[in-house]
Simulated assay, not measured.
Amino acid sequence: MAKQVVGIVKLQCPGGAATPAPPVGPALGAHGVNIGLFVKQFNDKTNNPDMKGLMLPVIVTVYSDRSFEFKIKSPPAAVLIKLAAKIPAGKKQGKEVIPPDAKKSGKYKGFSITRKQVEEIARKKFNDLNARDLEHAMRIIEGTARSMGIAVVD
């Protein structure tokens, strides 16, 4: 008898440091998944220096016999851009009121990334982006950076 998909759970977990605490435990426990087994497998797969500590999107497919498979996606573009721009964790601009004008928005004004860094990020994210080629993926990443207030320089 073939396995039937009971549910698909989308989570964001820190690479190499997932715990059974919320949000992982309650989300998977509701579907009857062995939470400890998921946490162990996830941490083993993400314990390398490239993924350790980054928030990683995970899609968990749960089957009728309570078995599961999970797929780890690449980190969000904003996280990779912050790393490339060397923005310290928790560091944002002061409590100034930002007008709703889109040209003046962005929390991280004063920071910048190079086109080469944009290309590296686009290569990492290419499989998860809806882009037809690398140039298109780079434009998507540049747009994300601009919306954050980060300048893209040559």
Rank of each mutant, 00 (worst) to 15 (best):
G15V: 01
G15D: 07
G15L: 04
G16E: 05
A17P: 09
A18V: 06
A21C: 07
P22H: 10
P23S: 11
P23N: 01
V24P: 01
V24E: 00
G25K: 06
P26L: 03
G29T: 04
G29Q: 04
A30R: 11
A30C: 12
G36T: 05
G36M: 07
G36K: 01
L37H: 07
L37T: 11
F38W: 09
V39D: 02
K40N: 12
F42G: 08
F42M: 08
N43L: 01
K45F: 10
T46W: 08
N47L: 13
D50Y: 11
M51H: 10
K52W: 13
G53Y: 07
G53L: 02
M55E: 15
L56T: 03
P57V: 00
P57W: 06
I59F: 07
V60C: 04
Y63I: 02
Y63H: 07
S64N: 11
S64C: 03
S64F: 08
D65S: 04
D65A: 09
D65M: 05
R66F: 07
F68V: 06
K71C: 07
I72D: 07
K73C: 14
S74M: 12
S74H: 11
P75W: 00
P75T: 02
A77Y: 04
A77Q: 12
A78C: 12
V79R: 13
V79M: 10
A84M: 04
A85H: 01
K86P: 06
G90K: 07
K91M: 10
K92M: 11
K92W: 09
K95I: 10
K95A: 15
K95G: 14
E96H: 14
E96P: 09
P99C: 14
P99T: 04
D101W: 13
A102E: 15
K104D: 09
K104C: 14
